[in-house]
Amino acid sequence: TYTFKVDNKDQAKKAAKWAKKLGLSFQIEKHGDTFKITVQ
């Protein structure tokens, strides 16, 4: 499981695209202005 934080929606979208490309499941949680992405 890999967790990282991004500062904006664009970065969150890029991370989601990357995870989908690799066939991984992911969750994006919004914490105020940051997004926490968990990829597994």
Rank of each mutant, 00 (worst) to 15 (best):
T1S: 13
T1W: 14
T1A: 10
T1H: 11
T1Q: 11
Y2E: 03
Y2R: 06
Y2F: 12
Y2Q: 03
Y2L: 09
Y2N: 03
Y2V: 09
Y2G: 02
Y2M: 08
T3W: 14
T3V: 13
T3F: 09
T3H: 09
T3D: 04
T3Q: 07
T3G: 02
T3L: 04
F4T: 02
F4H: 02
F4R: 01
F4G: 01
F4A: 02
F4P: 02
K5Y: 15
K5T: 15
K5F: 15
V6D: 01
V6N: 01
V6G: 02
V6M: 05
V6A: 04
V6R: 01
V6W: 03
V6Q: 01
V6S: 03
D7M: 12
D7G: 12
D7Y: 14
D7T: 12
D7Q: 13
D7A: 14
N8K: 05
N8I: 04
N8E: 03
N8G: 10
N8M: 03
N8H: 05
N8L: 05
K9E: 14
K9W: 15
K9T: 07
D10V: 11
D10N: 13
D10W: 14
D10C: 14
Q11S: 09
Q11T: 06
Q11D: 11
Q11R: 06
Q11M: 11
Q11C: 15
Q11K: 10
Q11P: 01
Q11V: 07
A12D: 00
A12N: 01
A12I: 07
A12V: 10
A12T: 03
K13H: 08
K13F: 09
K13L: 11
K13W: 09
K13R: 13
K13P: 00
K13A: 10
K14E: 07
K14S: 07
K14W: 11
K14V: 09
K14G: 04
K14D: 05
K14Y: 08
K14N: 07
K14Q: 09
A15P: 01
A15N: 01
A15L: 14
A15G: 02
A15D: 01
A15Y: 15
A16D: 02
A16V: 11
A16R: 11
A16G: 06
A16T: 06
K17W: 10
K17F: 09
K17C: 12
K17M: 12
K17I: 12
K17L: 10
K17A: 12
K17V: 09
K17E: 11
W18Y: 05
W18K: 04
W18P: 00
W18H: 04
W18E: 02
W18T: 03
A19E: 01
A19M: 14
A19N: 01
A19F: 15
K20F: 07
K20E: 09
K20V: 07
K20M: 10
K21A: 12
K21M: 11
K21L: 09
L22Y: 10
L22H: 13
L22E: 05
L22R: 10
G23S: 04
G23Y: 02
G23D: 02
G23T: 02
G23F: 03
G23R: 04
G23V: 02
G23L: 03
G23N: 07
L24A: 03
L24T: 01
L24I: 06
S25Y: 08
S25C: 11
S25M: 10
S25R: 11
S25L: 11
S25V: 11
F26P: 02
F26Y: 09
F26M: 08
F26K: 00
F26E: 00
F26I: 14
Q27L: 11
Q27Y: 12
Q27I: 13
Q27K: 13
Q27V: 13
Q27S: 13
Q27A: 09
Q27R: 12
I28V: 08
I28F: 04
I28T: 02
I28A: 04
E29Q: 08
E29I: 09
E29M: 07
E29A: 07
E29V: 12
K30F: 06
K30T: 07
K30P: 08
K30Q: 12
K30S: 07
K30N: 07
K30I: 08
K30E: 08
H31A: 10
H31D: 15
H31G: 04
H31K: 08
H31L: 13
H31I: 15
H31S: 12
G32F: 05
G32S: 03
G32L: 05
G32K: 05
D33I: 06
D33W: 04
D33E: 10
D33F: 07
D33N: 11
D33G: 08
D33H: 06
D33A: 08
D33V: 07
D33M: 07
T34P: 00
T34L: 10
T34M: 13
T34W: 14
T34V: 14
F35P: 00
F35G: 01
F35W: 14
F35N: 00
F35Q: 01
F35L: 04
F35V: 03
K36H: 13
K36T: 14
K36P: 00
K36N: 08
K36D: 05
I37R: 00
I37G: 00
T38H: 05
T38W: 05
T38R: 05
T38A: 03
V39K: 00
V39F: 07
V39Q: 00
V39G: 00
V39W: 04
V39D: 00
V39C: 05
V39H: 01
V39I: 14
V39A: 02
V39T: 03
V39S: 01
V39M: 06
Q40E: 08
Q40R: 13
Q40G: 12
Q40M: 13
Q40N: 10
Q40H: 12
Q40A: 12
Q40I: 12
Q40F: 15
